[in-house]
Amino acid sequence: MLDVREIHSFYGDAHVLHGVSLSVAKGEVRALLGRNGMGKTTLIRSIMNLTPPQVRAGDITFKGESLRGRPSNEIARRGIAIVPQGRRLFPSLTVTEHLTVLKPASVTTGWTVAKAFELFPRLAERRDHYGNQLSGGERQMLAAARALMIDPELILMDEPSEGLAPVMVQHLESIILELKAAGLSILLVEQNLFSALAVADQVTVLEGGRVVYEADAQSVAHDPGRLNRHLGVC
């Protein structure tokens, strides 16, 4: 479904991704692991064509069509949603507005405000709060609910468990499994190996802007030592 082939991304003259390739199949969860500063966010931003970074070489295709150089709003409309690192909620919008701003309340197909609130009942209680008045867990739920409103086929989640309490991380895992069961594909950036392994089908590790390890979840379970060497101690 998503195919990233040999992309090279730059911040100005700084060469950050060195020929990264990766794919996500339909209905699959791929975990993208790597320590701080290894290029995970850079890869996510390259896929959405958010600048910086600049993608100077390589190709990115989604359902067989090239995305490179297209405006990010068009990429989103083709069915890729992003849950950005740090959530990036809108401080001037209420919880409900975060959802209706992307899809008018009158549209009843696909994800609706009611369905999002069903998945995240907590958000329904907070519906009139502003983006900056929510707890860390609520913020993450809202970032995920917002992404769903564009009825994506693929969601790019950049460290959704960052800063969450363990119980919230577990909740998040169950949500990811639920979305996967509904047929969504997910590219999940994580630093938390155990959280990633709880939901992922495939694992990719980035180091210094290169893919240094790739395996399916079963083989990781059989030989966790190799993965651990790449991630340092997790």
Binding site: P71, N73, I82, F90, V101, L102, P104
Partner: peptide
């Protein structure tokens, strides 16, 4: 209105609202 919400979201964070499919 939704237009108003779009304007406010765009002012808060134009990159993110654009990445959500809006031609800001």
């Amino acid at each position: 209105t939704r237009l108003g919400a779009l304007i406010r979201a765009g002012v808060d964070d134009p990159e993110t609202i654009q990445a959500m499919g809006i031609n800001i």
